[in-house]
Design a protein around this nucleic acid. Structure first.
Lengths: 332, 332
DNA sequence: ACCTCTCTGTTAAACGATTAACAGGACGGA
DNA sequence: TCCGTCCTGTTAATCGTTTAACAGAGAGGT
């Protein structure tokens, strides 16, 4: 059996209250001799306060929740996870990860959050429906920071990213090079929507503006291997495109590889643009043109959450806009 | 304030015990009419049982902990995380992620685990010291599954991977091609040990067996970009190697790129072998020779943990060996 | 009529920590 | 001497849920 505060108290010859005052890090004064006896006893027994009991009483779990489409994932999510973990460690919080990849899971996750498993949540899910299911009936508890372009309930902060406009800029750039057969390689979730969103929206917007009606939309941007295969097929087809705008950098890099393996010159025969501004784009050959955030770290986003956790009284809803930009490099 | 069982009980005109019997999913019989009243009241109030209170009373958290070097990370860890999340979801568990990247963090993580934050843990940390710090004084609570070649205390399962032998095989393969200037690109943690371990051990073993004394050990296998830079420098140096054994596939792929960008033929001028057998190796040009696991999923490992959680009485310690093999492909 | 079951609900004691309220001693000032 | 204050420790209520133990009402057998 794990040792309890009671056993520490008996060994140190004090009451459990005193044990708690010594170990809970509150500012209740305790005589140095007593404090030492308690600390020694605690060490001797290997005592660590029970989290469940502490959470129940304090009404704080010292945990934050990261809600993602998948555990791990693309580099940008990885960075978000890292920044969250780092700040959590600094503040003595643990991180609980919820993977939300279906509506059923989204509803389950909403329940889990409502059950008080964490003091706050950082929601980084791209799909509208899933975000809605998560937020429905949440009524701002626990407080959340939502990284998505969506209406949030009271008690939530939101981080918006105007991806579409930056993507449109990138596509217009290749249009201005005179290219007309421009393909878009989409992420799966973009294809199953009633209207274009995000990166796909940027693509269609740019084509609309230039009066180009020819649309070549393929899937494959979700992982490297399927991106390569899709690109290989696309480039071998009769109406081969002269530009590919891929919804992720890792996909775009696969497109470059497929193009070179097919004997095409980049950007001569084929312009390639990715999304994400990942470091890997700098070591591809040629270097990858990309659309991405101006800042790579998510400390501002994470701080939003911890500000709310630290605050004594409810904070007003806040909003962050993370600007994106088009970076022309060698591949276009 | 969140609704409690007490409020549900009042609304349904029953006692809190009955509410608990209805909602906790135990097999205590409750009359259908009563059950319905309780369910209706719970739904109406949006009631979800408080996790902290439930955990305290049941002495189970319904949580498992994943301890990793970094949140997210390399593809193989990603797969482990995914498999863990999937099985956790199936069993109604949540996953809590602990990032352990220093001894201080390892000790902190050990405390957190001892505080009963989760019912069990899956430890996937490569560095000996960190694993030791984690397991020290743990005394098998909570039960853990350790993916590392280490002695584990009672109540822990261990998953061993004979990486070194498979890596030696790969290096011997390039030795048999007559190559003698074979470089090893290491992960950071391998370089700060008093004796060679894992992949580095395989490398030195193979060279020893063939009487080759020439050792070229560089770092850079931790991420793509530094791998590329390290390789570019290495290949431009006077005593250029004729083979590179990289401790990860992503690093190896960067080496191939660097070689081709430097005008070298692979495998003619330079043989390249990676570690991990990642899907990306199949779309590189040439395809990447690699050392890796025969099976890619970690369901067997994850099951080890959940068997232990499900078991009524303590289970005997178990051990899994995950075989590795050398896969010769185009790059060597 | 009486006893025994079964069925279904309630009472109340945990679980282990936190913390408001209290208490006793020491000390100093008037 | 008396009173107020500070210092340090204890008592006991509380957080919300679970669950063992109990209790009352019918049913059914003898």
């Amino acid at each position: 059996m794990r040792p309890t505060a009671r056993q520490v108290a008996e060994l140190a010859n004090v009451s459990v209250a005193t044990v708690s005052y010594v170990l809970s890090g509150r500012d209740r004064p305790v005589a140095v001799g007593t404090r030492k006896r308690v600390l020694d006893a605690a060490r001797q027994l290997g005592y660590t306060p029970d989290q469940a009991a502490r959470s129940l009483r304090r009404r704080r779990t010292q945990r934050v929740c990261l809600v993602q489409s998948s555990p791990g994932g693309v580099p940008s999510e990885e960075r978000l996870a890292r920044d969250l973990h780092e700040m959590a460690d600094m503040h003595g919080y643990s991180v609980i990860t919820l993977a939300v990849y279906s509506r059923a899971r989204a509803r389950a996750a909403a329940d889990v959050l409502r059950s008080g498993i964490a003091d706050g949540a950082l929601v980084n899910v791209a799909v509208d429906e899933l975000v809605h299911d998560l937020l429905a009936e949440s009524a701002g508890r626990p407080p959340m920071v939502v990284v998505h372009d969506v209406d949030v309930p009271e008690g939530c902060d939101v981080v918006r990213t105007p991806e579409a406009e930056a993507c449109a800029e990138a596509v217009e750039h290749v249009l201005e090079q005179g290219r007309r057969r421009i393909a878009f390689m989409a992420q799966r979730h973009e294809l199953y929507r009633d209207r274009p969103v995000g990166r796909l929206l940027g693509y269609t917007t740019a084509l609309d503006r230039h009066g180009v009606t020819d649309r070549i939309i393929v899937s494959g941007a979700d992982d490297r291997v399927s991106a390569y295969q899709t690109a290989a097929e696309l480039l071998a087809s009769p109406g081969r495109p002269d530009a590919v705008f891929a919804a992720s950098d890792r996909a775009a890099i696969s497109v470059i590889r497929a193009a070179r393996d097919a004997g095409l010159r980049v950007p001569g025969d084929l312009a390639v643009v990715g999304v994400g501004n990942v470091g890997e784009g700098l070591i591809s050959n040629p270097q990858l043109s990309t659309v991405g955030p101006l800042r790579h770290d998510y400390t501002d986003v994470v701080r939003l959450l911890f500000d709310r956790l630290q605050a004594e009284e409810p904070l007003p809803a806040r909003e962050i806009v993370r600007p994106w930009t088009f970076l022309r490099r060698g591949s276009s």
